[in-house]
């Protein structure tokens, strides 16, 4: 089932088209990457997904019903521009925002205490937000996003402002939430985390969706016949032979027993048979293009 379906969404501000016939399907229980350069229309899309604004035409379906603000209590939203009441105490603030999402006071308190413990910020419950460090504010904001146990989490650049240790903590929690059935939409420019975490992605550029699908599929379709081979034997001879077969070879001085081969239009078996004839192979890997490369290529092409 798709928890969120955008159907041909259009949105225009004045004469500027922000979203142009965007169609996105977010399967339940997945981590979905929403990618795109700055100003592509991601924030507008996210706002529509949250029921904050409505599309000009097209439909946003949430749990197979038209999205409304009332349904948005099942969504947890972490905006890119973080913000909390600076003068309000951390604990109080978590309770207040959870209650606005429809939680009872007692439930809100119980869950907030649990999360504060999990993130080790219990001592800061009665501190004003402005007294917290940036990292702690980020933690608090994440807690506020998940406190009401949303079925859909929309996280806009969730890792910005976190140190590596806390980034790992956050990733662990996000995966944990996914494993417990929460669907996560991850909007980020950090392509490494996309490769690591996302099951599906959509790439929005200049108000249009230019690429979407499973991450593993996309990387397969974008592969261009690049391999990394470890070997024992005469490297020089191997290079000459490969060049004769119209393969490009690049070597790294630091690793004389490794070679990178760019062999468009050749199957792995064919390539292997050529290499085996010269040297003995210790490792053989097909290099899939990174999401970073795919991102840059798609945006440039568009």
């Amino acid at each position: 089932m798709n928890i969120l379906s955008a159907r041909q969404i259009d949105k225009q501000y004045g004469s500027v088209k922000v979203l142009d016939r965007i169609t996105v399907d977010v399967p339940q229980g997945s981590i979905y990457g929403l990618l795109g350069p700055n100003g592509a229309g991601k924030t507008t899309f996210i706002r529509i997904a949250n029921g904050i604004t409505a599309p000009d035409s097209g439909e946003m379906l949430f749990m197979e019903r038209r999205m409304t603000l009332n349904a948005a209590v099942h969504i947890g939203y972490l905006p890119e521009e973080r913000g909390l009441y600076r003068k309000m105490k951390a604990g109080e603030q978590a309770l207040y925002l959870a209650r606005l999402k429809g939680l009872s006071k007692a439930d809100a308190r119980k869950r907030a205490v649990e999360w504060f413990e999990k993130f080790e910020i219990t001592d800061w419950w009665n501190k004003k937000v402005e007294e917290l460090s940036k990292g702690m504010q980020q933690k608090l904001q994440f807690i506020i996003t998940v406190l009401h146990r949303p079925v859909l989490l929309i996280l806009d650049e969730p890792f910005s402002g976190f140190d590596p240790v806390n980034t790992e903590l956050l990733k662990k929690e996000i995966r944990q939430l996914r494993d417990n059935g929460t669907t996560v939409i991850l909007s980020t420019h950090n392509m490494a985390s996309v490769e690591e975490m996302c099951d599906h992605i959509s790439l929005i550029d200049k108000s249009r969706c230019v690429l979407h699908g499973k991450v593993s599929h996309i990387r397969q379709t974008y592969k261009s016949g690049e391999y990394e081979v470890g070997f024992e034997g005469d490297g020089k001879r191997l290079e000459e032979v490969l060049n004769a077969y119209q393969c490009t070879v690049s070597r790294d001085e630091k690793h004389p027993r490794k070679i990178k081969i760019y062999a468009p239009g050749k199957t792995a078996n064919k390539l292997l048979s050529i290499i085996i004839s010269c040297v003995s192979v210790t490792s053989f890997n097909e290099i899939l293009p990174s999401m970073n490369d795919i991102f840059i290529r798609s945006v440039k092409r568009n």
Partner: peptide, 9 residues
């Protein structure tokens, strides 16, 4: 920037 969170509720 609190407003964005609040008006999602």
């Amino acid at each position: 920037r609190v407003v964005e969170i609040i008006i999602s509720s």
